[in-house]
Every structure is written in C-alpha cells, then in structure tokens.
C-alpha cells in the first residue's frame, strides 16, 4: 500500500546549518540537538489540530441536535460513526484515513454525549426546548 506524504517538505536544519561545522567541542552538542529537532513532523501535529477542530465542532452540534430533535436520533450518530471508522480502514492515504478514524470515534463519543445531554436537560443544567415533550426517564 502506497503511503501518502502529507508534508513533502521536511526542513532539515542540521544539513542547512551544520553542514560545514567541525564535529568537536560544543558544536557536537549543537549538532546532536539539531539532529533531534531537525525533523519537524507537521503531519502528526496537523492530525492533532484537525482532531481538535472535529471534536470542537461536535460539542455544539450535540447540544443543538438534542435541543431540536432529542436523544432519539442517536442511531444516526452511531451508524455514521461506525461507517466512518470502517471507511478509514480502506483508504490508502494515511492522513485522510486518520481524519476519518477521528471523525468516527468523535461521532461515537457524541452518541454517548447525546444521552448525557438529555440527562443535563432533565436536571435543569441545560436549556429545555419549550416546544417538545420530555419523557422523564
């Protein structure tokens, strides 16, 4: 399977800065430090950023969906979560596969969160939709 390189440019500061430096004295330490920090893994960092955004988007989505449609729509969240997580298995591009995996698990978490949100509404901790009947259960 061909892997997809989402960050084709890898800055190598070591070769840029220390190509002609002699390897002795404090320069060795500098070289080793540059080796450690020379490779900047943007791909992994971007995965975290996108995961943060996906989870952040679902935070208000759960609240609004519970407000307008109630907890009864949980199968949509669960099924789309499972579909998304399964689809992530069959995508060769690593970065896109990871985004689908995170989306899938975020949807599964949202399913659980939908029920918790319902409980919060019953306890008066969240806004109650005045046009909807809540079955106290």
């Amino acid at each position: 399977m061909k892997s997809f390189n989402a960050c084709p440019i890898n800055w190598n500061w070591r070769s840029a800065n220390f190509a002609d430096a002699p390897g002795n004295g404090p320069v060795v330490v500098l070289q080793n430090t540059a080796f450690m920090f020379g490779f900047i893994n943007y791909e992994g960092f971007l995965v975290g950023l996108f995961a943060f955004l996906i989870i952040g988007i679902f935070h208000p989505v759960v609240i609004r969906v519970e407000y307008h449609y109630g907890k009864g729509v949980w199968p949509f969240f669960l099924v789309s979560g499972i579909v998304s997580a399964t689809a992530s298995l069959f995508i060769a591009q690593r970065f896109i596969s990871v985004l689908l995996g995170v989306l899938g698990f975020a949807l599964i978490w949202s399913t659980l969160e939908l029920f918790k949100q319902h409980q919060r509404v019953l306890k008066g901790q969240a806004k109650r939709n005045p046009r909807r009947n809540y079955h106290e259960s």
């Binding site: 995961a51 997580a85 992530s88 298995l89 990871v98 995996g101 989306l103």
Partner: peptide
C-alpha cells in the same frame, strides 16, 4: 487495510 485511522481514532 489501513490501521492508522482506527488507532488514532
């Protein structure tokens, strides 16, 4: 199959 998505998820 690509396991990265499932693991990171």
């Amino acid at each position: 199959i690509q396991l990265s998505g499932l693991i990171i998820g």
